[in-house]
Design a protein around this nucleic acid. Sequence first.
DNA 1: GTCTATAGAAAGATAGAC
DNA 2: GTCTATCTTTCTATAGAC
Lengths: 194, 194
Amino acid sequence: MYDGGVKTNYQYRGVDAREMLVASAQKLFAEQGVEATSPRQVLEDSGVGKGSLYHHFPTKRDLAHAAIDRMSVASLDNARSVLMSSGTPFERLSAYLTKPRDAVAGCRVGRLTSDATVMASDELQQPVHDYFTHLIDLVAEVFVEAGATPKRARERAITAVAVIQGGYVLSRALDDPDLMSRAVTGFLDLIEDR
Amino acid sequence: MYDGGVKTNYQYRGVDAREMLVASAQKLFAEQGVEATSPRQVLEDSGVGKGSLYHHFPTKRDLAHAAIDRMSVASLDNARSVLMSSGTPFERLSAYLTKPRDAVAGCRVGRLTSDATVMASDELQQPVHDYFTHLIDLVAEVFVEAGATPKRARERAITAVAVIQGGYVLSRALDDPDLMSRAVTGFLDLIEDR
DNA sequence: GTCTATAGAAAGATAGAC
DNA sequence: GTCTATCTTTCTATAGAC
C-alpha cells in the first residue's frame, strides 16, 4: 500500500521538534545552566509536547549532550574563523581577544565547568574538554606563527584563553562588561612587541 | 529559680549546630554549587536535625548567605595576607599567583557567578561582588608599588585576577592542575622586568 | 533549640492511546 | 512522532511536641 507521503510528513515533523528542543535547551542552558533547567522549562520554551521530548531524548542527559555538543562546536568554529582569518598573527590574536562577547552573560561553554549535572557525567564533560583543548591549540598555533617557541606559544595560549574565561567571571561578578575589556587590554598590552 | 546552667547548655548546643550547618554548606557548595545542594544534603553531612536547620536558617537562601559570606571573607583574608606580606612587589604578586590552589576543584567564590541560585538573588551576589572588587583593589595596589600608573595598575590587576579565574576554569575543564600553573607562568613571564 | 511527622510543589520520567 | 494522564522521588519548607 502507498504510504510514502505520510511517512515523509512524520519525519519532517520529527526533525522540527528535535531542532526546537535543542535550540530551547541551548538558550536555557546559557541563561541558567543545565542543573537549573528542567525538562518542563524546555517544553514550555519550545512549545513542544512532553511525549515528543521523551521520544527524541529519553533522559535529560541526552538532551543536554545534544545541546552542549552544538554549543561547543559552534563556539570553536567561531573562534577558528577569527584566528585563521587574514592579517598578522598579532592582529588575529587581537581580533579574537577583542571580538564582541556578551561578557555579563558568561561563557556558554566555560560556565559548564561549574555545572553539577555536567561535571557528574563524563559524556557531558567531553565536549567541554574538547572545546578548550582545540581552542588552546588554535591560539598556540598563532603564537608560533608570531615567532614563539612551541613551548612558550602553548603557555601564552593557555594564559590568553584564561584571560577570556576569567574576564567572563569578573564581568559577571561585577555585572559590568568593562571587566572583560580591561582584562583583555591588560593582556594585549603585555604581549605587544614581545 | 536557678536555671543558668541549662540555659548556657542550650546556647552552646545552638551555636554548635549553627556552625556545623555553615561548615557543611560551605563544603557542599564548594563541591557541587549552591543550586545543586539540597537542605537535606546539608542535614545529612552535618548530622544536625531538620528542626535545627530551619530554626537557624528559615530558608535555603539564609543558609547560603551565611556560607557564601564566610567563604568570601576567608578567601579575601587569605589573599590579603599574601599580597601584604614582606618582599618586593613582584615577589608578593608572584607569591599570590603561585600559591597552592586546588585548581581542579575550581574557585569557591568564582564558581558562584554561574550558580543559578546565587545569581537570582542580589543578596547572595553581594559577597561575590565585594570579594572581587576588593581583590582587584589589593592587586592593583601592588602594581602601583611596583611603579605602574594607577590606571595601568588597575588594568593589570584585572588581568591578573582573570588569569587565576580562567586558570580554574581550564584546570576543571581539562581535569588537570597544570593548566592553572601554565596560565600563571605565562602571565608572570610577561610582567617580569616590565 | 531540637526533633519527628507531614505537606505542597516541582523534577524527571513512564504508559499507553492516537 | 506526538499527546495526555499518571507516577515516584526529591525539594523546600511547616507544624507542633519536647
